[in-house]
Amino acid sequence: MPVPRFTVGTAVQVLDLPIEGHIRIPAYARGKIGVIERCCGPYLNPEDLAYGRTGGPAVHLYQVEFSQHDLWPEYIGDAEDRLFLEIYEHWLTPARPPSWRQAS
């Protein structure tokens, strides 16, 4: 198992991969920038499991923190309101830290 590519606190952007078929990355998060909150460890990829491929490889999964105002242009709420998603490693790429993370 390769070591996790990202560590807690790293800024990441969610990719918009051209995958057809079953995926677990909601459309509203694709292209958005967040920060790794927790490394969950390796899990089998649902993009394989959905087609009966149970032999792996496992992929690292991360909890990623997003600012609600980054996700929803018309969001009404506190500047510190957050949304958390789990994203598999191949959907993430390094990014510049979002402004809300630089400030804190």
Partner: peptide
């Protein structure tokens, strides 16, 4: 003055 954290259960947690 309370902030909201939403957890969307989209994967294994």
């Amino acid at each position: 003055d309370i902030v909201i954290h939403v957890r969307d259960s989209n994967a294994d947690m």
